[in-house]
Design a binder for these strands. Sequence first.
DNA 1: CTGGATCCATAACGATACTG
DNA 2: CAGTATCGTTATGGATCCAG
Lengths: 142, 142
Amino acid sequence: MLLTAKVKEMQNKNEVVCYCPLEGIIDVISKKWALLIINAIGNYGSLRFNRLIEELRGISPKTLADTLKQLQNEQLIKRTSFAEIPPRVEYSLTKDGQGLREAVVPILKWAATRQGSKRKECSLAYRKIPAHKIRDSSQKIT
Amino acid sequence: MLLTAKVKEMQNKNEVVCYCPLEGIIDVISKKWALLIINAIGNYGSLRFNRLIEELRGISPKTLADTLKQLQNEQLIKRTSFAEIPPRVEYSLTKDGQGLREAVVPILKWAATRQGSKRKECSLAYRKIPAHKIRDSSQKIT
DNA sequence: CTGGATCCATAACGATACTG
DNA sequence: CAGTATCGTTATGGATCCAG
């Protein structure tokens, strides 16, 4: 049996999962700050630019701006700007963004329990970043 | 209530998941080929170097070698070399590696069903790569 | 056959200063 | 406040040739 035919048959039986949908997304989730940004916004419901700078201790405004734009292009976050003085912009998760935030949890749990992780405490690098904790969205911080 | 205290309380109740275990791992899974390599090996049980080159159409030997080394350091794959002429080396997944392979599936499924994916077929870039299909490990290809 | 060594192009990321 | 502009550093991946 040809490989392609075999794959097709398995796909019909729902035995095959494909990496194709990841195209584009893999470029996003592989970015250093992307998941942390999505999580930070998810933790609070919505966040402003400078608030994100504080949450993601160590990120530069340029990097944050770049990443936010990509996340918008992928429709993972929504940007809402208010015509006020001083200007105000809020970022929140789209439905897709919330979905991604939840889809990542299995990996986190796997990483937490695997053999290689001897760490009990959070590492210094991450302890400085409030956004490294995932909180249930029903328990938003105010 | 202080934020730190709040976090700790939620952690006890298992309501908080932390990104810290990802440190190190995030550098691995974020690499362009890492997930595809793990999946390719998982699809077959074990694979040789040049076989991987074929599966991952487009990867260069250096990139493959580099990535394989990282995956070994993270104990996600195991390298077995046989003292033969010509030399033979086989790569297989460790238990951790299999765990990661499964932990990724939710993200794949999320990506496949989300709004942004209008694609029915696999994109050209991925269609060329046999390893972009996840197969059940009980149905290895021979 | 399995890579190691070398060189190169590009992109990611950061620091800082500045603007509507 | 919410970014942009500019510059520099580093990390990543590819091409090619070579060696045990």
